[in-house]
């Protein structure tokens, strides 16, 4: 008889240690605070007083799933853990769920109705639920033309640098998709970022601004973009992100070239660019555009955020187009309030 699924409270030191020792015995080794601090809930199954299975959720992502199949039919505990986590997420109204796992466990999740989005030597990303990547792709209209460019940007906020990158793509390609990162983890909200990108590109008629959904640099597919993470972690996640772009987004919407800005400032983005160059060709070409400079320094959205924090907008117009400048001036107090409340401005 299988045991009951119970809550594990990882903020209790004894529980945390038992949980960590159990997962380590199964080969899971990353217990950095950036990973463990974002866990919302953890459940486990005990056989007597021995932990034999566990799983956690963070937002809409399943994490730290580990099962010992000793004395038990293969899959029983695993199915119980995944059922419990999906039911708890459903209670919170979350039905679209992702899991990062080792490639050898991809099949086990597929048996429970998950579909694989991408796989690499180090990991696999799967999803399940009421929407799929196909549902997302169906919402994006097909742009006409032979050469179609794709750009992914967080645009926190939209600068003259972003504008320059899109202009270059719009000159060289027949049409351009601009995918705006859809995760609300930046100073400017997703709605604000999409609004400023759309306003700042309104005069370019071969450019379409769309949401990056859950599939491009989202909190689900690429958490390291939003959290400080070790290089290995970033490479692992960006490889999957790049493969999703190539095998789904670019394939489905016939994107031939991905444009990126050269990246002298952000380590995470620099790694991302090099992974894109390794993963996307030959099906999708990667064009790195030299970053635009102003006042002898590259234009960076981070500088704009620092200006907001420092309450000094003297040089704002050099860095951002009029549409963004106007928005910042009108909402300055509100943006500064967010920074005071603890919104980080030094990340992405």
């Amino acid at each position: 008889m299988a045991g009951q699924v119970v809550d594990l409270y990882l903020n209790q030191e004894g529980t945390f240690n038992e949980w960590q020792t159990f997962l380590q015995s199964l080969g899971i080794s990353n217990f950095s605070t950036t990973e463990t601090s974002v866990i919302d809930e953890t459940v486990g199954i005990f056989d007597g007083d021995r932990l034999v299975a566990t799983g956690s959720v963070s937002n809409n992502v399943l994490k730290y799933i580990g099962v010992c199949n000793q004395n038990q039919t293969q899959g029983t505990y695993f199915n119980m853990i995944v059922t419990e986590l999906l039911a708890r997420l459903a209670q919170r109204g979350i039905f679209h769920v992702f899991v990062f796992t080792k490639p050898q466990y991809s099949q086990s999740f597929q048996h429970l109705g998950f579909s694989e989005l991408a796989q690499s030597a180090d990991g696999a990303l799967l999803e399940t639920g009421d929407v799929t990547i196909q549902t997302y792709l169906d919402t994006i209209p097909q742009l006409p033309g032979q050469s179609i460019a794709g750009i992914v940007m967080n645009a926190n906020p939209f600068t003259r640098g972003h504008r320059y990158l899109v202009e270059r793509a719009a000159e060289e390609a027949d049409a351009v998709y601009v995918f705006v990162v859809n995760t609300d983890s930046s100073l400017f909200t997703t709605e604000e970022r999409v609004g400023l990108v759309t306003a700042g590109l309104a005069d370019l008629n071969n450019v379409l601004v769309v949401s990056g959904g859950d599939y491009m640099v989202s909190y689900a597919t690429f958490p390291a973009y939003f959290l400080t993470s070790p290089e290995k972690e970033i490479t692992y996640q960006t490889t999957l992100d790049a493969r999703i772009f190539k095998n789904w987004v670019a394939k489905e919407r016939h994107i031939t070239t991905r444009y990126v800005g050269s990246e002298p400032r952000s380590r995470t983005t620099a790694i991302y660019n090099s992974v894109l160059q390794r993963e996307l060709p030959p099906e999708v070409a990667v064009k790195v555009i030299e970053r635009r400079s102003a006042n002898h320094d590259v234009i960076s959205a981070r500088t704009v955020r620092e200006m907001i924090a420092a309450d000094d907008l003297t040089h704002l117009a050099v860095l951002v187009p009029d549409t963004t400048a106007k928005y910042i001036q009108e909402h300055l107090t509100d943006l500064q309030k967010r920074i005071k409340k603890g919104m980080k401005i030094d990340g992405n």
């Binding site: 029983t76 199915n79 039911a87 459903a90 109204g93 109705g113 639920g129």
Partner: peptide, 8 residues
Amino acid sequence: TALAGTLE
């Protein structure tokens, strides 16, 4: 959206 049943 609604969910019922288990994967057991």
